[in-house]
Computed example of a mutant assay.
Amino acid sequence: MNNRRHPPLTSQRGISLIGLILSLGAVVLIAMLAMKVVPTAIEYFSIKKAIVSAKNAGTTVREIQIAFDKQAEVGYITSITGKDLVISRNGDDIDVSFTYQKKIPLFGPATLLLDYEGTTAKSGIATKSQNN
């Protein structure tokens, strides 16, 4: 008898249950990591905007620090303050730089350490802090 209702078994296509579970696990891990890293990246870009605004708002070191602190309060910036900024003269121009580290706990003893730095200098190279 020739049974046409059931085609002969050939190679199956698609993802297996184990493959699906592993794929979903990887997606969940990446999503969890992104949920922890994205807020720090958003804060970093807010700091970069705030130093440009502070630089344009003042001519002395203290005025720039105060202007940054006001921007930080409005922009929910908590990683650095105006006193953490490195402010230096470059001829007639003022350069404002910052560097900081953000430590993000992942799970157990594992943490992720991110180094952020930025500057208003045209060269794009941040001035290192003299006071540690």
Rank of each mutant, 00 (worst) to 15 (best):
M1G: 09
N2C: 11
R4N: 12
R4K: 10
R5F: 13
R5S: 11
P7F: 05
P8Q: 15
P8N: 12
P8T: 13
T10R: 15
T10H: 12
T10M: 05
S11C: 06
S11D: 09
Q12C: 05
Q12T: 13
Q12S: 10
R13V: 10
R13N: 05
R13S: 08
G14D: 04
G14T: 00
G14H: 00
I15N: 01
I15M: 12
S16E: 04
S16K: 07
L17E: 04
L17Q: 09
I18K: 07
L20R: 05
I21T: 13
L24G: 14
V28C: 10
I30F: 14
I30G: 13
I30D: 12
A31M: 15
M32P: 02
A34R: 04
A34C: 06
M35K: 11
K36T: 08
K36M: 11
K36L: 11
V38H: 00
A41S: 12
A41T: 12
I42R: 10
I42P: 01
I42W: 07
E43M: 10
S46H: 12
S46N: 15
K48N: 15
A50H: 02
A54H: 05
A54Q: 06
A54K: 02
A54C: 11
K55R: 13
N56S: 15
N56A: 13
A57R: 03
G58F: 00
T59Y: 13
T59R: 09
T60W: 08
T60Q: 08
T60P: 01
T60A: 06
V61C: 02
R62G: 08
R62M: 08
R62C: 01
E63T: 11
I64S: 00
I64E: 00
Q65L: 05
Q65S: 05
Q65T: 09
A67C: 03
F68C: 05
D69C: 13
D69Y: 11
K70N: 15
A72K: 07
E73V: 12
V74S: 10
G75Q: 15
G75S: 14
G75C: 08
G75Y: 07
Y76F: 15
I77H: 09
S79T: 07
I80V: 06
I80P: 01
I80A: 00
G82M: 03
S88T: 14
S88P: 00
R89F: 09
N90R: 14
G91K: 10
D92C: 02
D93P: 04
I94E: 06
D95F: 00
V96R: 01
V96I: 11
V96D: 00
V96K: 03
S97Y: 02
S97E: 03
T99A: 14
T99K: 15
T99L: 15
Y100G: 10
K102L: 07
K102E: 14
I104T: 03
I104G: 03
L106E: 02
L106A: 05
P109V: 08
A110F: 14
A110G: 00
T111L: 08
L113W: 10
L113C: 09
L114N: 06
Y116I: 06
Y116T: 04
Y116Q: 02
E117Y: 05
T119W: 03
T120L: 06
A121C: 11
K122I: 13
S123N: 14
S123I: 07
S123V: 09
G124W: 04
G124R: 08
G124P: 02
G124T: 07
A126K: 05
A126Q: 11
T127Q: 10
K128S: 13
K128Q: 12
K128A: 15
Q130P: 09
Q130D: 13
N131W: 07
N132S: 12
